[in-house]
Design a protein around this nucleic acid. Sequence first.
DNA 1: TTGCATTTCAAACAACCGTTTGAAGAATTG
DNA 2: CAATTCTTCAAACGGTTGTTTGAAATGCAA
Lengths: 211, 211
Amino acid sequence: MTQTPLSSSDKTRAALIAAGLHLFSQHGYAGASTRAIAGRAETNVASIAYHFGSKEGLRTACAEEVARLISEAVGKAGPQPVGPSQARAAIKSTLTRVAGFVLGGMAPPDAIGFMLRELAEEGPSVDLVYARMIEPTHRRLCVLWAVATGLAEESEQVRLAVFALMGQLFYFRIAEGIVRRRMGWRAYGPGEIAKIIDTLTRGIESALSGG
Amino acid sequence: MTQTPLSSSDKTRAALIAAGLHLFSQHGYAGASTRAIAGRAETNVASIAYHFGSKEGLRTACAEEVARLISEAVGKAGPQPVGPSQARAAIKSTLTRVAGFVLGGMAPPDAIGFMLRELAEEGPSVDLVYARMIEPTHRRLCVLWAVATGLAEESEQVRLAVFALMGQLFYFRIAEGIVRRRMGWRAYGPGEIAKIIDTLTRGIESALSGG
DNA sequence: TTGCATTTCAAACAACCGTTTGAAGAATTG
DNA sequence: CAATTCTTCAAACGGTTGTTTGAAATGCAA
């Protein structure tokens, strides 16, 4: 943990990325003006071009920051599970960890929003996010799922099942507004997140034990 | 089926809505310029203001079109199921129908993309889409799910389970690019959609039969 | 301190934005 | 047919966009 003191330059860079993440995720890439971003970062418009070359440069800097944040939160692969019950436990703990990150305030809530935006726009950052985060995580879960079910690790059935699992989780984030409305929840607090995780866990349980 | 012939006005209106759906869903509301929309609809920029009052007017017209398309595709509620097995069958048939619409080319693919955009932007159309389509569909599925499981119709567990179910489906649409990449699919053809539906059906089966 | 590189800033740039305008075209009515 | 309404269009409007500029401000070594 080298804690180099932040230079003035580093601070504005970080502020611009934070502001970019927030406004990109809220209004989309085109909808977030450079002036609004600079204003939120409490600096001048020209800083964006100075530090990142262009608005597009800030976009990829944001993507890299998101990839960094997420891979940090998801963590590295645990030890290879030796049996189905261990694999099942590993799936559940991974899910809980990721859910806390995706749904809760463990990270800038803008990180996930930004990523989903990039996904929708098929933006230039999607390659980066896919290669650095989605593919490895998905692949790791496939291994666990295969061990837990006895199916082939890279079979279509396993890969699709893992996508379905991740899909449930992300949907609760994407459609947060709708879920809150329908559930009568004012926000995703710890209690609400626990209920969501409980729902997903229940699904995993029955998928892994049932036929 | 009254088949009134389309007037010139109706044709440009329809063309503008189709172009709006496409470009809004691809580049977001702010990212789609009125000139680009008019160009795609092969008409003049001023037509937007003439027919819809403003760009924002076109946005809500698009939302209404999406609501119309979807409620048409999802259809009305079937007869009240008399037992768990009937309810289970009704859930599966509803899922298959909705999946064909969401994933396949049964509707302008831009319709779902537009809706997800509005969701992300918390745009003004979200109320309309929620009230006209999401809430009723969700509520109907909750009834079926409750009958199939014996749980209370409006219990938190049922409502969350239904969201999880819908989430899987929508995620396969949202993350289509990623899924295709990971699966090595060139596109969502009938075969691929069948496999996805199969995955979701499997999940329902085990969720409803298992504990 | 002086000198130099780094970082910030207000101002200006062309290009594009959504919208308005008034005239021209097309369709409908009597 | 002429009269009238509806629809389209090129052009122009003020405002905002992303980016550039050159001068201040700041940080840091000598």
